[in-house]
């Protein structure tokens, strides 16, 4: 077998392992489905009752925000699972096997794409119940979901890198929460970034999360002519910006995470 064939075969083996794990651990999948539902309902009924937007309902505005919030949060599962495997010595076993070193991380991140699909489906269904609608052409809507999944995949390599450098599940969880909260909330997910004070506005508009949210708002048709798009380049070209961000994250973090994995031992 060539190196590439080996890497693919090993990647498939590890992906199967992760799918089995998801099936056997209902708590993990249950969390991935129910948390987003709770968020949709809370935001729809709590903030949705208070906030008025020109030309569109707040529920339609915030649902893309919740989509992206969920994939950012669930990328933490990638990192958390990796720290657990590291601690239990499973990586020691893998690393003494003649397998491709990239396979473990590829298998983990691909398994997490399935978790994201489950989350997105449950959120979209609940979203439809509370009044969110797709106003665009079907192919645009499909593209919207694909863009989301691509960014989610790229982002899970970021959390994999962080997890492998922090090593313990507890530390990882703390750091990941501290980093991901501002990433989600200092964006256009739930508020109109043009109304933020100066420096915060710049930060929010160049935040990659904002580009992703703007991209899917446009692809799902959840925009309003009465709400002007900010002048920042990523929000003017949100789909391109999202693709560039995803590519950049993959280029930087795939080799970085793989390198850390190769040196990772349980203790």
């Amino acid at each position: 077998m060539t190196a590439l064939q080996t890497a693919l075969a090993d990647g498939v083996t590890i992906t199967k392992r992760n799918i089995l794990k998801i099936r056997r651990a209902p708590d993990l999948l249950g969390g991935a489905i129910t948390f987003p539902i709770v968020f949709v309902l809370l935001f729809a009924y709590v903030f949705g009752s208070m906030i008025e937007l020109p030309g569109m309902s707040y529920r339609e505005y915030m649902l893309p925000g919740i989509f992206v919030q969920t994939i950012v949060m669930s990328a933490q599962i990638t990192g958390y699972t990796l720290t657990l495997d590291l601690q239990k010595g499973i990586f020691d076993r893998f690393r003494t096997l003649p397998m491709a070193p990239s396979a473990v991380l590829i298998g983990q991140t691909l398994g997490d794409v399935l978790m994201n699909v489950a989350s997105l489906v449950s959120m979209a269904l609940v979203g439809l119940v509370v009044g969110w609608r797709i106003h665009s052409a079907p192919h645009e809507a499909v593209l919207g979901f694909l863009v989301l999944l691509l960014f989610a995949y790229a982002f899970s390599w970021v959390t994999a890198t962080v997890a492998l450098s922090l090593r313990t599940p507890e530390v990882f969880n703390n750091i990941a929460t501290i980093v991901s909260m501002p990433l989600v909330f200092l964006s256009n997910a739930f508020v109109d970034s043009t109304r933020l004070p100066g420096p915060l506005q710049v930060a929010a508009e160049w935040n990659p999360v904002s580009a992703v949210i703007q991209a899917i708002r446009e692809l799902f048709g959840n925009t309003s002519a009465a709400m002007p798009v900010p002048d920042a380049w990523p929000l003017r070209h949100p789909v391109t910006a999202t693709l560039l961000w995803s590519a950049l994250l993959l280029i930087v973090f795939v080799p970085l995470a793989t390198r850390l994995y190769k040196r990772a031992v349980s203790r």
Binding site: T13, K16, R17, L20, K21, R24, I90, R93, P98
Partner: peptide, 24 residues
């Protein structure tokens, strides 16, 4: 190793089959 590096969610057979696949 010193502590069993086996996967909790997989069955015994699945654990060993996975190792076999990774030895190609």
């Amino acid at each position: 190793g010193q502590y069993a590096a086996v996967d909790d969610h997989l069955t015994g057979a699945e654990n060993l089959e996975m190792v076999g696949r990774l030895y190609h």
